[in-house]
Computed example of a mutant assay.
Amino acid sequence: MSSRALFVVVCGAPLASRLSDGVRVVREWGWTPYVIPTDAAMPWLVEQDLGDVPVIVGNRKPHEPRRTPAADAVVVVPATFHTLNAWATGNAYSYPLTTLCAALGAGTPTVAVPYVSRELTGHPAWASSLAVLGRAGVRVLDPGSGSVASVEPLQPGTGSHVVVGFRWEWVLKQLELRE
């Protein structure tokens, strides 16, 4: 069992259907995963076999102990337009967003994989949110190519190809570069 805790924040988009693959790869690379889904991600997780991986939902109640160790790293796969913009502006109104904002504030190594349409990336908030996160040290990875040099919006009709071609190893390699 690894002592490296990896928080895997999952948003509601088709790339969430690959979470069980991610859990397997994360473990193979020596990480202990903790899944933190947004409400919109929950339907994507229903049929997936995550084994004994803790799925952390909702805020803990007063006087409850922490449910996770401190994160050694955080990944957001997929990161939706909504979550990425809320995170960049510090809106910590849900447990996944609180987790992301705390990681940013603590300087925890973080990788985000946006899964966002061309129309949404044309919104003015998109570029500024990517810039804020980039300046804060978040590595933003293109889901179609694994590149951190640029992130291309999803073109209509290409989502299923992106989901099939995505490699969790791309995310973990970016974390290794931060160690």
Rank of each mutant, 00 (worst) to 15 (best):
N85Q: 08
Y95C: 08
A136M: 14
V74Q: 02
G134M: 02
G137H: 11
V138K: 05
C101N: 14
V151L: 03
Q174I: 02
Q155D: 05
T99H: 10
A86N: 13
L154D: 02
A127F: 00
T83Y: 02
G137L: 12
A102T: 14
L133H: 03
V77H: 01
V162N: 03
L130A: 15
V113P: 02
G122H: 08
R167M: 00
S128L: 12
A73W: 01
T80R: 06
V140W: 03
T110M: 15
G146W: 09
S128D: 09
S160F: 05
A88W: 07
G146R: 08
S129Q: 04
L120Q: 09
V163Y: 00
T110Y: 05
G90A: 11
P143R: 11
Q155V: 10
R167E: 14
P96V: 14
L154R: 05
G105H: 09
C101P: 00
L133K: 09
V171Y: 04
R118N: 06
G105R: 12
V132R: 15
L130M: 15
A73T: 06
W126L: 11
A125L: 13
R167W: 02
L172T: 02
G105T: 13
S145H: 03
V75C: 07
P124S: 07
H161E: 15
T158V: 11
E176P: 00
S160G: 00
W168I: 04
S147A: 13
T121S: 13
V138Q: 04
V162G: 01
T80L: 11
L175T: 02
V132L: 10
F166T: 10
A112S: 15
F81C: 03
P78C: 12
A136K: 09
G122L: 14
V111H: 07
V74T: 08
P153I: 08
T108W: 03
P96A: 15
E119G: 04
H161W: 04
L154N: 02
T108K: 05
V77F: 01
P124K: 07
T121M: 15
G137M: 12
S150E: 13
T99R: 12
P109F: 03
S147G: 05
L141M: 12
G107P: 03
A127V: 11
V162S: 01
P153T: 07
G137T: 10
C101L: 13
L104S: 08
S145D: 06
W170V: 06
Y93E: 15
S160L: 11
W87P: 09
H123Q: 11
D142W: 02
V171W: 02
A131N: 10
V162K: 05
T89C: 05
N91W: 15
T121P: 01
V148E: 07
V151S: 01
S147W: 06
S128H: 12
R135W: 01
A127R: 14
S128Y: 11
L175E: 03
L120R: 14
T80Y: 04
P109K: 10
S128K: 13
R167V: 00
S147R: 05
A102D: 14
L175C: 03
H123W: 06
A131P: 00
R118A: 14
D142P: 07
V138Y: 00
T110E: 10
K173P: 00
E119Q: 13
W126E: 07
V113K: 06
